[in-house]
Write a protein that binds this DNA or RNA. Structure first.
Lengths: 113, 113
DNA sequence: GCATTATATGCTGATATCAACATATATCAA
DNA sequence: TTGATATATGTTGATATCAGCATATAATGC
């Protein structure tokens, strides 16, 4: 096994900093490849390839308009990340709750004296 | 450039599914290497190495207890992920707000007729 | 000290990944 | 049609990454 291939796993696709930069440029809305290239200091083929990976995992969508291709963010595909993080938050909160209860118990014992 | 090295970047460290599994086992609390090995179907050296990577990026901490090493989750280091995601949520909400305003405008125009 | 248990590290070979460059495809305009 | 613009794809070489195995280190118990 290993890294489940950059093209099938959202986590993997996001592992590359350049790819995250590309994604960042799409936050403000749909953009053509050229616009992204201009904004970032990457070559056009480089951007195209990163977009390809992002599209393969569904993080971006694409529509053709004349000779340009407009890419857009598919934020729904960030759900796996969300869920994953939520799991950890949940665990953290549970842990904090337990600490909290423990502290309350200590306090009650103190009051009983 | 490229992947900023699995040992320096949280995103990169989380790119590996096995590493995420290891991390998952720590959600319920501190565990020794052997306990993790037992729970997952990985070799001991494999787990040790993944833990090393996780420790390098600060996602886990470690303390020695006799001949065992107890690893614990350092959930604070998930902040980069959080912040990154938050940025996208923010953007999505703003976008939705705009759609909302637009719809309201349309509605008002309709009422004015 | 010696054996045992728990964990870490070193090495190897297979595979993946990336940037860079060249080149192909497609659309538009004259 | 020809040329220009916009984007995608192919190839290469350097590097990273992983699993697997062997081995080293360290703590414990006899």
């Amino acid at each position: 096994m290993a890294r489940s291939s950059t093209t099938s796993d959202v986590f993997n696709a996001l592992a590359d900093a350049h790819r995250r930069e590309v994604l960042d440029t799409l936050i403000t809305g749909e953009k053509a490849v050229g616009a992204i290239v201009k904004r970032l200091s990457m070559s056009q083929p480089q951007v195209s390839k990163h977009l390809r990976v992002l599209r393969a995992v569904g993080l971006v969508g694409c529509r053709a308009e004349g000779r340009r291709r407009l890419y857009r963010l598919e934020s729904a595909r960030l759900a796996p990340l969300h869920e994953w993080l939520a799991k950890y938050e949940q665990a953290m909160n549970d842990r904090l709750d337990r600490v909290d209860n423990y502290l309350k118990e200590l306090q009650q014992q103190g009051e009983r004296r």
